[in-house]
Amino acid sequence: MSDLMKVSSNPHIRSKVTTSNIMLAVVIALLPAAGFGIFNFGLDALILIVITVATCVLTEYLYEKAMHKKITIGDFSCVVTGLLLALNLPSTAPWWIGVVGGIFAILVVKMLFGGLGQNFMNPALGARCFLLISYTSIMCNFDCDAYTGPTPLASLKAGESVNILDMVVGRTAGVIGETSMIAIVIGACFLILLGVIDLKIPGTYIITFVIFIVLFGGHGLDPAFVSAHLAGGGLMLGAFFMATDYVTSPVTKKGRYLYGVILGILTGIFRIFGPSAEGVSYAIILGNLLVPLIEKITMPKAFGKGGERA
């Protein structure tokens, strides 16, 4: 009997990686973009980031306390939501925008659907879209002490020339966390090296978007036009930090590639043919809604039920 193998309940393979480990890594990866945003826009950006993150943490704590649920703020998911939402806000937004957005993200998009793992869309992007619809003038006001006038993407859409180097470095108007392509890529490389994310979704997303604007952007294979679209707006922030959200992205390999293609096409449609110069937030939100269908058509069949042999 001593030679018999012990039998335990599943899962039989366990990992030391936890939700809190992953979320903490995402927070660290977002620090370069957040730090540059504070450097670029000043104290207003720092205040908005702190208020938004604090609102998300407090909202989750109070809801779980009131509903007599397990307190989960220690998994850092609410911190990630608050930080991502803050980085998607203009530094000129009043402090209460962070409060309204934080409450909507955590309470409406996340907790009312069951908490982490149950939300059907990215909470930060859901809140940003809600704020864009409800407070359009505030969310589209990027005039501050450092910069005035339209964002580079708005200028590009109007047919004006833009400084691509400034867009790559981040010396431009925009929301707090999207201006510096360098800072975003540094954080993305950190997550890739840790194995938190891979390039299936962001790589497919970016390549599809480039192909779309080359075909339909009206400038052909113009390096300056393509580079401006890659460096401008929230494409990089969305591709690496929000489209890769574990909860709202497909789990299947083919599904991730298909998801990236859909996001690239939607972003291209919104930017080229839409009235706004941006389109990443709405593209990812619509992509989130399509994830159940994507997984349904890309889920491999079990062997013996029509699936192929390995």
Rank of each mutant, 00 (worst) to 15 (best):
L4E: 14
S8I: 15
S15I: 14
A25G: 06
I28G: 02
A29D: 06
P32F: 02
G37A: 07
G42L: 11
L48Y: 02
L48F: 03
T55H: 01
T72F: 11
T72N: 12
D75A: 00
W96P: 01
F104W: 12
A105I: 00
K110P: 03
G114S: 06
G115S: 07
G117S: 00
G117M: 01
N119D: 01
R128A: 06
R128I: 04
C129Q: 11
C140W: 12
C140E: 14
N141W: 03
D143K: 09
C144Q: 06
G149W: 11
L153W: 07
A154H: 08
V162M: 03
D166G: 09
T172Y: 04
G177E: 05
A183G: 03
V185E: 03
L191R: 07
L194R: 15
G195H: 08
I211D: 01
F212D: 01
I213R: 05
H219Y: 15
G220R: 06
G220A: 05
G234V: 04
L235I: 13
V251Q: 12
G255D: 09
R256A: 11
L266V: 07
T267A: 14
I272Q: 12
E278H: 10
S281N: 09
S281T: 15
Y282T: 13
I294R: 05
E295D: 12
I297M: 13
A302M: 13
E308P: 04
